[in-house]
Nucleic acid binder design. Structure first.
Lengths: 143, 143
DNA sequence: CTACCTGCAAAACGTTTGCAAGACG
DNA sequence: CGTCTTGCAAACGTTTTGCAGGTAG
């Protein structure tokens, strides 16, 4: 898992941004998580490790600007997910209204449809699509 | 335009909610707008007409709960759009990062693809989709 | 009349920022 | 060593709430 950090360090260096203990902690937290996390959740997981909430927000913003991380807005709070190291550049999010967890829908067929949809919008030539969010909300039959 | 309010009044009455001057003003504002609005924008348009910002938020929340209005989250602020009176139950939003305006993409072909996508997810039977948000972000060649 | 609704101001919430101290390269 | 980064606390912008007065049905 840590070998992916080679790429990440290069991206930072290219932008004159220093790598720090805190940035690595946040990135590893996102890598290890099975679902998408809020800044507060990341902070709660890491606060015993000498890291402040403001740092979590600041580093996430840096990652978003570098396009390492994607910010997914919900009505009350923003979620974050790793963008690089993922083989799915475009995919659908599902947010369970019961357990409040957000994750990716991993289905090649569905994701292909999504990509086709994006292309169709782009081809209209009236728009230049820079980013997209598809979030489905509802219930997952979770424990 | 006002004839649509008959339906709306029935929905309110069914839920023991009173119709008020303020609720109608907000609803008409959403009906007349060509794009989706934030609570602050609605308030700015209406503040000369004896209405408070808190009321705008409160009424919008009531409308969202009654499924008259849809709340579309963005990173910094939520947008609102009318859900009933619209012939497009499912559609795509486009937010221009330049002019900060959000609106629907009106294209039957694209919207059909979107509906098919939703159905496909539903058919997987692991999820019960209650609501969905597709927002594309980028540039529109606006003046 | 009664319950629901409003405006206002204050509070709450997630997020950002200023600053002095600390750490990376 | 210089610059970028951090933690803390204070500030910010959006949204919510408590309350006394107002209004719909």
């Amino acid at each position: 898992m840590k070998e992916n950090l080679i790429w990440y360090k290069e991206i930072l260096a290219d932008h004159g941004i220093k790598n720090t203990r805190q940035k690595e902690l946040i990135l590893l937290e996102l890598m290890q998580s099975s679902c998408h996390l809020t800044a507060e959740e990341i902070y709660q997981h890491l606060k015993t490790k000498r890291i402040g909430l403001a740092t979590v927000y600041r580093c996430l913003k840096v990652f978003v600007n570098l396009e390492i991380v994607k910010e997914i807005p919900m009505v009350e709070v923003n979620y974050y997910e790793l963008k690089i190291f993922s083989k799915k550049p475009l995919h659908i999010h599902f947010k369970c209204s019961n357990c409040n967890v957000m994750f990716d829908i991993d289905d090649i067929d569905i994701n292909l449809d999504y990509i086709k949809l994006n292309e169709k919008v782009e081809k209209k030539r009236e728009f230049e699509v820079k980013d997209a969010n598809i979030t489905l909300m509802g219930l997952i039959f979770c424990s």
